[in-house]
Write a protein that binds this DNA or RNA. Structure first.
Length: 860
DNA sequence: AGGAAGACTTGGAAAAATCTTA
DNA sequence: TAAGATTTTTCCAAGTCTTCCT
């Protein structure tokens, strides 16, 4: 689906960027080439040496690790902090042990029960005796999920009150605990000198630090910006020792330091895969403690819990403070927000420091705020975008946009009436609303140009930003948010043109066009139509509308993940630009309903057909059968309104067929999908069977007759089984869930079949359908890494013809569009320490892998 | 009323991760 | 398997909008 990448539309910014990049690349190449020719001999030596060393390293590594461990153990903890950490670790370990033991007990009890009943639930099967019974102590090896194994999901959207608590000022929590913030690491001096007027000058650490920050902008436009240089020089001079001979910026040569920075960067880039992974793991270990909060007992991921390191401020555009030092944040400028009953977290890594304040505000979504190291404003530490606390207001935002769609007509009628008002303010209000509605301009609050860059939005537009061409064309040219230039020529309503002409009449270039109104006035006007309507909702509405429009051009039920969404430039809303393929940056994603893009939990819903989605929206809420439902129960019965206990899908039916009274006929193939809930845990299984002699004629286009002489149906069923089997071979700790799809599709393609993309495998346990989603096609974007204890299904559906499906009017049955046959196999799998256990394997078969395909097993 | 403070969203740049290609 | 391309994540600047204060 890759469309032409760059169309004829010259996009200035992009072009420039590209040129720049090309230049840079060239330069880089030249540099590296030069370096290579010069040091070729040395490099070769190095490489050879490295090759030798690698082997040695591997051998040594183990030894070293052991040594390190020993050393660590021997070293007496120098600081109290270490002691505390160790204590805490010990405590946590012990707690975990306790928890495990308790779970073990529970499990053992459950198993006893299960034996009595003579049935095993999926979870019980998790504890299969994998170890040889020869061991002296028949120690039960239990694989189970712990908190660390997977991300708990706050399924707030399934609660009755939904996103209610996402409203501004609403209560967000009853209990709330977190571990505080991670302070930026100290600056480590490197003693690389500055060259001043041709002479090497070693700087004291404070000065070296500022100079080193300067090198971080090398290669960026800041390097040559007057304001940035001026401010940097001011900052730098202040930290130079008295009597320093450094007097003139132009005589300063920072290249040694810059080279050092680059070398360090290269060092990082050139780390081996193992080194990178090790460091990542180490970092994760260090930061994990800080990265979660517990909100009402649910673990929620935090966003920016790492405090900003000191650096030269990189204000955008002509920001007057760019180049000044943004100072380090100390605990004394941090206010924590935490539950009354929670422990106040210790200040870590800043001995002798203390929090400025601790508050217990349960109507706000921040966990801490701190003073910016340069600007006068406060900054907030809050939750990650995937958290419920961010998701709820997000949901409300899209609801607002949806409601705006309903009333936009009346708003337009209103302002079209008001733009002829005698009252200038009203006329301005109406005209400004027109621009916000039609062009999705930002509302444009007033700014202090002494402190910030001079940028504008709708209300702050000045005469100099507009040009009028009769009869009714308005040319806009101004710097918007982030000093990004907005240029657009639009034909506007005649009245709007006349109004604007009237507003700017007799005004100076630097005067405001809409001088009689402010953003507050506009928002007040919007409140007449909808209580929570404000100017920015128009942008959400506008962008969502455009996105939907673009999405309508695709068959959405197909591979969402593969598509790059086509979007217009959200700044200009220029539809001609819409033919460009762009990746979804944060900017565009921000305008998308999370059901489309962000929350993994929604993804499956989106991949489902329109009918299924409709049902999901209309139908009863997901039924969670928990431990209080004992015994055995058919999972599908009443699940989201499914009327029967088993899915029966014959011939062209892909899945979710509702059993009825029609008799099966000789030559049919039929899939039976059986799912049970036992003591609160679900298991899922299906197989495709041959009814009598399946001798449908072979289709030579899709069928290799030599390999499978029987019939097309046999070929299809065999292929489906083999696709599942091939993917199962991958199941083991460390495999990415998304890898399975690639194997399945490859197998299908090899056999001339297509893979159904609208339905996927899923996590299973207490929930019939839980995370993760497991698509059966390649290049899918499902998240997650298999770990021991994970339980899920893989259930590829293969079609003889095309992969597209059609939903029957019953709202459930999915059949192939072309009427050709479809087959499916499904099992429930457990990831064990060293591989897989097929939880739904046939009695008496080996559970550690799928048996080879045997058509006799499916002959009826 | 209107300006400042406070709180929260939006969005660009760059780094990191991942995929593709030769 | 390295280089290059593309996507995702991280970081933090810069908006909007509500509430508070005088």
């Amino acid at each position: 689906m890759q469309t032409a990448m760059e169309t004829t539309n010259g996009h200035d910014k992009k072009d420039k960027k590209e040129k720049k990049e090309k230049k840079e690349k060239k330069e880089k190449k030249e540099k590296t080439e030069a370096a290579e020719t010069g040091d070729a001999a040395q490099k070769e030596k190095k490489d050879k040496a490295e090759g030798k060393q690698k082997k040695e390293k591997k051998d040594k590594k183990d030894k070293k690790e052991k040594k390190d461990k020993k050393d660590k153990a021997n070293k007496e903890p120098k600081e109290k902090k270490d002691k505390k950490d160790k204590k805490e670790k010990k405590e946590r370990k012990e707690k975990r042990k306790l928890r495990k033991e308790q779970k073990l007990k529970q499990l053992a009890d459950q198993r006893k029960k299960a034996h009595k009943i003579g049935l095993k639930g999926t979870k019980m099967l998790a504890s299969k005796k994998r170890k040889a019974p020869a061991q002296s102590q028949p120690e039960l090896k239990v694989l189970m999920k712990t908190e660390d194994d997977y991300e708990p999901v706050n399924r707030w959207w399934e609660r009755e009150d939904g996103a209610e608590s996402g409203k501004r000022g609403a209560k967000k929590w009853d209990t709330f605990e977190h571990h505080g913030l991670l302070f930026a690491p100290d600056y480590e001096p490197h003693r690389v000198p500055l060259i001043y007027d041709g002479e090497r000058v070693e700087l004291p650490p404070e000065a070296e630090e500022i100079a080193y920050y300067w090198t971080s902008v090398r290669g960026t436009p800041y390097e040559t910006k007057d304001i940035f240089i001026k401010n940097f020089w001011k900052t730098f001079k202040e930290v130079l020792p008295k009597g320093s001979k450094i007097k003139d910026f132009k005589k300063c040569d920072f290249s040694l330091m810059a080279d050092y920075r680059e070398a360090e960067r290269q060092k990082r880039l050139n780390r081996t895969k193992e080194e990178k992974e090790a460091e990542k793991a180490k970092n994760a270990k260090e930061t994990e403690w800080f990265s979660y909060a517990i909100v009402n007992g649910v673990r929620e991921k935090l966003g920016n819990y790492k405090l900003e390191p000191p650096q030269l401020f990189r204000g955008r555009g002509e920001h007057p403070k760019q180049g000044l030092l943004k100072k380090r944040t100390f605990p004394e400028s941090v206010t924590l927000n935490i539950g009354e009953t929670a422990c106040v977290p210790k200040v870590v890594g800043m001995p002798g420091h203390a929090w400025r304040d601790v508050v217990h505000e349960n109507t706000v979504q921040w966990i801490a705020n701190f003073e910016d190291g340069l600007l006068t404003e406060a900054k907030y530490v809050s939750f990650a975008a995937t958290s419920g606390l961010k998701g709820q207001p997000d949901m409300l935002k899209y609801d607002r946009a949806k409601r705006l769609v309903r009333i936009i007509g009346s708003i337009r009628t209103s302002y079209e009436k008001m733009w002829t008002s005698r009252n200038v303010a009203d006329r301005q209000k109406a005209t400004a609303t027109y621009f916000i509605d039609k062009l999705a301009l930002r509302v444009g609050g007033e700014k202090d140009t002494e402190e910030e860059a001079d940028t504008v939005g709708c209300c702050s537009l000045r005469v100099e930003h507009l040009k009028l061409t009769p009869p009714h064309t308005v040319h806009l040219d101004f710097l918007g948010k982030d000093s990004i230039r907005y240029t657009n020529s639009v034909e506007v309503a005649k009245q709007v043109f006349d109004n604007v002409q009237g507003f700017i009449k007799g005004k100076k270039q630097e005067d405001q066009v809409f001088d009689k109104i402010s953003p507050a006035d506009l928002n007040e006007y919007f409140k007449n139509f909808m209580e929570d309507l404000s100017a920015k909702v128009f942008r959400t509405y506008n962008a969502s509308y455009t996105l939907q429009d673009e999405l309508n051009k695709f068959d959405v039920s197909k591979r969402l993940h593969k598509h790059k969404t086509h979007l217009g430039n959200s700044e200009t809303m220029d539809t001609k630009e819409a033919n460009k393929t762009v990746s979804l940056g944060t900017s565009k994603v921000n305008y998308m309903d999370p059901r489309l893009g962000r929350l993994g939990e929604y993804r499956q819903e989106f991949v489902m057909t329109a009918g299924a989605r409709h049902r999901a929206n209309q139908g009863p809420p997901l039924q969670i059968r928990s431990e209080e439902v004992l015994g055995l129960y058919p999972s599908p019965l009443n699940y989201m309104g499914f009327p029967k206990s088993v899915c029966v899908s014959a011939n062209e039916v892909i899945c979710h067929g509702i059993p009825d009274s029609r008799p099966l006929q000789e030559g049919d193939i039929v899939n039976l999908d059986v799912s049970v809930c036992h003591e609160g845990f679900h298991a899922d299984l299906n197989e495709t069977y041959f009814i009598g002699q399946c001798d449908e004629e072979c289709d030579t286009r899709t069928c290799d007759a030599a390999q499978h002489p029987q019939s097309v149906s046999h070929h299809l069923v065999r292929s489906t089984y083999d696709a599942l089997k091939a993917s199962v071979a991958l199941i083991r700790p460390g495999t990415l869930y998304r890898q399975l799809g690639g194997v399945i599709e490859a197998e299908a393609v090899k056999r001339g079949c297509s893979v159904v993309t609208a339905f996927c495998g899923h996590g299973v346990g207490r929930l019939f359908h839980g995370p993760p989603d497991i698509p059966h096609f390649k290049k899918n974007k499902t998240v997650g890494l298999m770990k021991p204890g994970h339980i899920f299904t893989v259930e590829p559906m293969l079609n003889l013809g095309k992969s597209r499906e059609r939903l029957w009017p019953d709202g459930w049955t999915a059949a192939t569009r072309d009427g050709r046959r479809s087959a499916q196999f499904e099992h429930t799998f457990l990831v064990t320490e060293d591989g897989v256990e097929v939880l739904t394997a046939r009695v008496g078969t080996d559970r550690s892998s799928m048996p080879d395909y045997d058509p006799a097993a499916f002959q009826r």
